[in-house]
């Protein structure tokens, strides 16, 4: 299994050759250290079974997803973003009251030097993924009321069931969102909320059929959370 996954990743990486700048030392590090856990080219088998066997989030659209400055910082000092790991189902167990995270199953992420982190971030930002995966310019950038955003996030749309809007509260199966604005590009946040299954097939986040004002409001709220809560 491991070997076939690695072979698939290698094959996929080869197929994605044009997207990876050969003269970038970060590309070499990606291929040497990252592809055993992360796909850097779109896999052929985007099945639910693959979701269970992959070891880390896909990176073949990293350039359309992340903010480079955050990547550089995080790869030097990696901290957990998803309270229950990725994927949550492999890291939870029954507790006294409710299920809890089984910390013993979580492993630390590889840590890079500053120079390597910058090189890898450059290589990752070149991986923009399939055309149309993220709707460029979709988020209009309007400022939203934090009170209104919080009401939609928690009570009206139920996002807080799986995500935390501030440290220590909310759900654990999805990534923390008080750092999302620092980590992610606004149009990626918008596109992911709109149709998570399009970005990451079979992912355990539902597609809520949200109307445009909801998408703008929630994207704006999540971006502003980073400014207010994530520091």
């Amino acid at each position: 299994m491991k070997r076939s996954l690695l072979a698939a990743s290698l094959g996929a990486a080869f197929a994605a050759g044009p997207a990876l700048a050969a003269d970038n030392p970060g590309t070499g590090i990606l291929k040497a250290q990252c592809i055993s856990c992360h796909a850097i080219a779109k896999p052929d088998n985007m099945t639910l079974d693959r979701l269970w066997t992959r070891k880390g989030p896909d990176l073949y659209y990293a350039g359309s997803k992340f903010n480079k400055a955050w990547l550089v910082k995080w790869m030097q000092e990696p901290v957990r973003i998803r309270p229950a790991g990725e994927f949550y189902a492999k890291h939870v167990k029954a507790g006294d009251k409710e299920d809890v995270v089984d910390e013993s199953t979580l492993t630390a992420h590889v840590k890079l030097s500053k120079a390597d982190a910058e090189a890898v971030a450059d290589a990752l930002m070149a991986l923009t993924g399939p055309d149309g995966l993220v709707a460029k310019g979709a988020f209009k950038g309007d400022k939203v009321s934090m009170a209104m955003g919080a009401m939609f996030f928690s009570k009206l749309r139920g996002c807080a069931a799986c995500h935390s809007a501030k440290p220590g509260t909310g759900g654990a199966s999805g990534p923390e969102l008080y750092t999302a604005g620092e980590r992610l590009q606004p149009d990626y946040i918008y596109s992911y909320i709109k149709d998570p299954q399009k970005v990451d097939p079979h992912i355990w986040m539902p597609t809520l059929n949200l109307a445009e004002p909801d998408l703008q409001r929630l994207t704006g709220y999540i971006l502003q959370l980073s400014a207010s809560e994530g520091k």
Partner: peptide, 24 residues
């Protein structure tokens, strides 16, 4: 497989409604 992927996060590994997301 679908239950273990999508439902367990809230309905729990024991299927008792006490998933990892239910604390709050």
């Amino acid at each position: 497989r679908n239950y273990d992927t999508y439902c367990v996060q809230c309905h729990g590994v024991k299927r008792n409604g006490r998933g990892v997301n239910t604390r709050d």
